[in-house]
Simulated scan of single mutants.
Amino acid sequence: MILEERRNDGVALITLDRAPARNALSIAMLDALSAALLRAEDARCVVLAANGPAFSAGHDLRELTAARAEADGGREFYARTMALCSRVMQQVVNHPVPVIAAVEGVATAAGCQLVASCDLAVATPHSRFCTPGVDIGLFCSTPAVAVARAVPRKAAMEMLLTGRMLGAEEAREIGLINRVAEDARTGALELAQQIAARSGLTIRMGKRGFLAQAAMPLAEAYDAASAVMVENMMAADAEEGIGAFLGKRAPQWQDR
């Protein structure tokens, strides 16, 4: 269901491996992804990929439909599913190191939400993205949380209200993904290697600070960011990095 590989460069590769079900995010898949993300917290960067023709088709509709047979019509199961999915998406956002989506094939509904939750995303020219809940009478309200934070408001609303499929170039233009590459996994790993080659302390501190200030009003954001800069300047890696730059040599990171 989930494959994990820890590479020599410090990059953790997590692969969704439920191809026959188009990597649908069942309860079991979400639990497995959560556990894999937890195990990757000591990595330098994470790449999230998928096997098969779809990155992820979103929630497992067969699993959701089966729950209607419960005495409460499925309400408790639906609430548990949405709560778990929301927790995993927040786990991606708040992961201590950058998480990069490598999107080959389609990413729809909660699958698109997963892409939008990642810090960066690389897709192939043939990748497609949509939030098609309106087509089946189910507005993509939880995917909207991630999508609305990744793309401009009107672009998000068009995706959500029409369910229209976006091609890779359009997804890049609106900011849902960063890059288009012939091989998304290779492109994502190359990007991860660039990040992993930097000071791990700086990357972790920078991601944490970025997320914190983004949720603040302007003046508070500058105060918070200034405090992070001071903390960062006091780190050994900042002293080493500045010294290496001035001395025209490669830095030797200590991650402290």
Rank of each mutant, 00 (worst) to 15 (best):
N232P: 05
R198I: 02
L176F: 03
I177K: 00
E70Y: 10
C130L: 06
P98C: 05
A150F: 07
A69G: 12
A236D: 12
E190G: 06
A144C: 03
A184G: 03
A83D: 10
A40I: 00
A192S: 03
A192H: 00
L166C: 01
K207M: 10
V228H: 04
G241K: 02
A49Y: 07
D60Y: 01
A235M: 08
Q113D: 14
M233R: 13
G206C: 13
A40F: 05
C45R: 06
A181K: 00
V46A: 10
N178S: 11
A109R: 08
A150E: 02
K248L: 11
M29W: 02
A156K: 07
L166K: 03
R153Y: 10
E169T: 14
L161C: 11
A150Q: 07
P152M: 08
H95N: 05
T142Q: 00
F77Q: 09
I2G: 05
M233L: 13
V180H: 02
Q252V: 15
S127P: 00
C140A: 15
D237L: 05
R172W: 08
N178A: 10
Y78H: 09
H126Q: 14
D183K: 08
A110M: 13
R256P: 08
G167Y: 06
L114W: 03
M159A: 03
T186W: 02
Q113Y: 07
A32W: 02
V151L: 07
D17C: 13
V147E: 03
G209L: 02
A168D: 02
G133P: 01
A69M: 13
A148V: 09
A49M: 11
R256G: 08
S226E: 13
P53M: 05
M234P: 09
A19L: 01
P251Y: 02
L246M: 15
P53A: 11
R198K: 12
T81S: 08
F77T: 07
I177V: 12
Q113A: 15
G163H: 10
T142L: 00
D135N: 14
R62E: 14
Q252P: 07
I14G: 05
C118N: 02
F77D: 03
A12F: 05
L48G: 03
A123I: 05
Q113V: 06
V230E: 11
V134H: 04
I203M: 13
V88G: 00
A40H: 06
M205E: 08
L211D: 11
R249N: 13
T162E: 13
R164Q: 15
L161E: 10
L191N: 01
M89C: 09
D9R: 03
G58E: 00
L161V: 06
A24W: 01
N23C: 10
Y222Q: 12
G209R: 00
A244T: 14
A197S: 15
H95F: 06
L160M: 00
A225Y: 05
P132V: 04
R39I: 01
A250C: 10
T202D: 06
M216L: 15
G163Y: 06
D17A: 15
L176A: 05
P96K: 00
A54F: 09
R6K: 15
P152R: 08
F210Y: 13
L189C: 09
M29L: 14
Q254I: 11
D223N: 11
E240W: 01
